[in-house]
Every structure is written in C-alpha cells, then in structure tokens.
Amino acid sequence: MMQRRDFLRLLGAGGGAVFASGLAGRAMADDGSNKMAGAYDDFYFVQMSDTHWGFKGPANPDAANTLKHAVAAVNALKTQPDFIVFTGDLTHTTDDAQERRRRLAEFRDIVSGLKVKNVRFMPGEHDASLDNGAAYKEMFGETHYAFDHKGVHFIALDNVSDPGARIGEAQLEWLKADLSRQKKDAPIVVLTHRPLFDLAPQWDWATRDGAQAIELLMPYANVTVFYGHIHQEHHHRTEHIAHHSAKSLIFPLPAPGSQAKRAPLPWDPAAPNKGLGFREVGAEVDASRYRITERPVSAG
C-alpha cells in the first residue's frame, strides 16, 4: 500500500492517464482538474522514454509521427516543466554506425522543438550497446552524470553501454563517491534505463550488477528510481526505494514475464497510441495540500 506522502502524479500522453505512485520524501498529487499550475510550487519534470526513433513495423504504423506528437503534447502543457529527461532508447538500434548517427541526429532535431530547453538525455541499449556508447557520446555527452535541482539530487546511471547490462566497477565507484557527498536524508532521484532490480531476467529486464547500485543507495532514506526499457508503467519497491518504469513512445510491451516472448502488443487502429505516454513527476514538500486521483489510461 502506497503512502499518501509518497504519491506522485504520472500523466499519460494527451493528458489521459494519471497514476499515483511514490517519490519518497516528496509528494504531490493530481487535483482532478488536470491543471498543473499551483500544484507545483516546488517543481515538476517530465520523463519521456523509449522513443525508438527509426523503428519501422506493424507495432506502430505511425512511428514517423509519434515522437513529434509527444513533443507537441509536452509543449501544450499549461505549466511547462522545469526540465525534461529522456530515459533511453532514443533511437531504434541498427548495425550501421552511420545510420545510428543519422537516427540520433534526427531525434535531436525533433526534440529541439520542445519549448523547455533544459533537457537531459540518457542512452538505452538500442542507442549504445553495439558501440559502447560512442555515437551517443558524440551527440549527447556523458552517459552518466549527476545534477541538483531545487534541493533534489539527480543521478543518471548508465546500465546500457555495456552490452551485458552492467553498470561496471568504475561507475559504481563514481556513484559511491557522489553519494558520499549527500546527507542520508537527502531527496535523491535515480534516472536509468534498465530496471536496477531483477524484474524479469528471463526477458533480459534486469541490470546484471544492479544489486550493487541498490546496496549503495540503501543507506539513503529518500531514494526514488525512474527508468524505462519495459515500455509500460511498473511500480516496485526494494525496501524503502521505489522504482517506477515509464511507458514508451513507440509501442507497449506485455506485463513482465506474462508470456514466452516479449513481443510488442499489437497496434490498435481503433485506439492509436494506446499504451503510450509520458510522465509528469512533481516534487512538492507539502503533500497535505493535495488529494490523490487515479485515472485509467486513454489514447492520446
């Protein structure tokens, strides 16, 4: 059972979906009106994930437009977020290094249309695993980093540049050093692509050394992880640490381990963009001012 103080608002593409979940130590909630102004005295950010620019296939016959529509939807938010983060799989993978760079450049050009210019990027395995992040770094810089925003410490972890889904010793050492500068009750948000815990390793939905990262984070009281990779909402806790996966912006995938093959859910012509979306995450100190509303997903 999630606690009231731990709730967040997670909004689907087109403004149709709301789910409440936890950002430990911070909280906010939907007021039911879909009006964000006033609800975010502190701030909110938008998480977009798994855009897979370059994908072609029946799972999304509108793939050439979905990202553009998502950019327009974010731009249409009444109150713009403080920043936007893309949690990986910006592009769909290709063996062709030149084509990979072309897709990354096209992605960058499209998202440059976002009104908000404070945009953070992270790679997914489709962007980075075949060249250890080389093309990604050329265009977007480092694959792991940290920053602070209005009292919240954000840590972006790279668990995809190694095709074996390892964070790796060097990055874990960096994480340890970064955390050592934080108070034990500091609000910390971890952004990453793959789940840090073993969600469905039989589908490769895991990070091979993710347990080591969680162990390093465990002494900190207020840690929340936002990730992508699995193309659907999923909410999990490893003790006090909440983990929230985001919907994708290309095609949804089945529930973890629910069938033999992790094939995309079929496109529904009657409900385009069903199961796709982005997320608003609000950080608000005083949760008591808000009430919680959950809504079903609807097409954008």
Binding site: D95, E125, L130, P163, G164, Q202, D204, K261, R262
Partner: peptide, 19 residues
C-alpha cells in the same frame, strides 16, 4: 526453463531466446 541471450546483440536481440 526459459533461457535468453542477455548480451544485447542487435535489432533481433529480443527474439533470441528458448527453453
């Protein structure tokens, strides 16, 4: 017992599995 390739190997990686 399902098994999977867990080293990302390209566009068909998600199809590389068995039991």
């Amino acid at each position: 017992h399902p098994f999977v390739c867990d080293n990302f190997c390209g566009e068909g990686h998600e199809d590389m599995h068995g039991r």
